[in-house]
Design a protein around this nucleic acid. Structure first.
Lengths: 111, 111
DNA sequence: TTCTTCAATTGCAATATTACGATAATTACT
DNA sequence: AGTAATTATCGTAATATTGCAATTGAAGAA
């Protein structure tokens, strides 16, 4: 126990769940916001911006990289991170498709 | 350690992270899909639909209810669940606002 | 009341996540 | 080589999540 039974669900459901998990932490949201805001890449500035320790930031970056939503490239002694626009769009579409317009005839749910 | 340092982040970031966490599990996504699909409410049918044990489903429902995205009301011996359209829309907007269009001049990130 | 049915809660085990100190790895510069 | 700067990884502790068996709770039917 303790681990998700992914085999019970279809690919889309697992994929969307993983996407949600990738952004299910305020630090990772803050990182993505920074990367979008500054358009280009930053690196260890993130450690200063957010108040978390360097290993913690590094770990969050790793998870975002694993999810594919960011890229990192070595730039001298520092590392430059940025959004992967392709994957970003994929996220955008997945969440958009999931949160379809839902009818509310009564305006107050159904029960 | 082990717990998120929510005080380092602003309200929007924490709120969005919590929303993401609410749907960061394929079972909860499957539940929401069912509720949207059947429009009206189901209840213990969810236990049959998904292959998880009754207490597990109950726990996922509890989390979704805590996030506010679903409502439950007693209907005889069974309980009827449904989407809260108001909160659903809020989720929709939050994710939509977060995943803004991101420019990709080169088409391949920035690093 | 007793029985049945369905859902919530409890208690527990397994696993995952979050955070950080300490340490390594990498690159640039002397 | 040695040093400084920056990031990744390791190891560990604290907490959170997932899942279910067993039980309890609540509502209707006998």
């Amino acid at each position: 126990m303790g681990s998700t039974k992914t085999d019970l669900f279809n690919k889309k459901q697992n994929e969307l769940a993983n996407m949600a998990k990738a952004i299910a932490h305020p630090a990772r949201i803050a990182i993505l916001e920074q990367l979008v805001k500054t358009n280009a890449c930053i690196c260890g500035d993130l450690v200063v911006e957010l108040g978390l320790a360097q290993p913690t930031i590094s770990q969050h970056l790793k998870e975002l990289k694993l999810a594919g939503i960011i890229q990192g490239s070595v730039e001298g002694t520092s590392v430059c991170y940025c959004i992967d626009p392709k994957v970003w769009k994929k996220f955008r579409e997945f969440f958009n498709n999931f949160f379809v317009e839902v009818g509310d005839p009564t305006g107050e749910g159904c029960c």
